[in-house]
Design a binder for these strands. Structure first.
Lengths: 124, 124
DNA sequence: TTCGTATTTTAGTAGTTGCTTAAATAAGCA
DNA sequence: TGCTTATTTAAGCAACTACTAAAATACGAA
């Protein structure tokens, strides 16, 4: 795009440049974090994460039953969460159990606290 | 969908029902929270939120310049953030400045801390 | 009022996402 | 080995998203 269209006359050039540097410095981190937030930013996946958090571990079949969705649809969500290492698997005979990875359990806890206490509508 | 396809034989019916109740009880909160996370879960919007957080306030034009995007594209992101009250506006002559709402500033801080300290790749 | 600056809005479009259906894989058991 | 159970994967498609380009709105100054 062409930048010469609207730089406002009172623009603080120093500020703009500082910000540009900041963004390029942190660029990879933005990608990584936004990707993680996007995963949690889906209604179904957020419920899945919450259920796994509360119950410690669940299999696709349980989740499919709880959410009233096809196993296939749930499985595809689980794969996304697993690819990004928000959750991990543990096989027990034919059943594969999913649980939160330690890092994300810690990270998601505050959100689930808010959810659980139903404070969400006032807090946000 | 039809549920009778795969309820595994050793399924814990009590657990399933407890989870179903939990989900329907918190249903509105899941919608609200996932919607918010989705907004932050976009590369461009996360950068916008971060920049506004660091600089206190910025106008569309500044952000467009910093990110190398058209003003129109940035404006459309800002509208989404504003609709959901993550950010608010303050007019100064022809220029409209955007800043984080207090609630979200508090809520986003821990994420930006991680970003800033570049810990993100180890922490997440 | 007319012009310039700052910004938003609208319409159109290419790319992405989340689901469905059907086929494939994997483990346990007769 | 074949059969059942548990699960994943692949193909297809409808809905959604983020952008572009052009038009519209809003304020200030001459």
């Amino acid at each position: 795009m062409d930048n010469n269209s609207c730089i406002r006359q009172q623009a603080d050039i120093k500020q703009i440049n500082r910000c540009k540097d900041r963004v390029s410095e942190l660029n990879g981190s933005f990608d990584y974090l936004s990707n993680g937030l996007k995963l949690a930013g889906n209604n179904v996946r957020l419920k899945i994460l919450f259920l796994i958090y509360e119950e410690k571990r669940l299999c696709v079949c349980d989740i499919s039953d709880i959410l009233g969705m096809t196993i296939s649809a749930v499985s595809q969500h689980l794969r996304k969460l697993k690819d990004r290492k928000l959750i991990e698997t543990e096989r027990e005979a034919q059943t594969i159990f999913y649980s939160l990875t330690k890092e994300y359990e810690k990270m998601l806890k505050p959100f689930f606290k808010i959810l659980d206490e139903n404070k969400i509508l006032e807090t946000l």
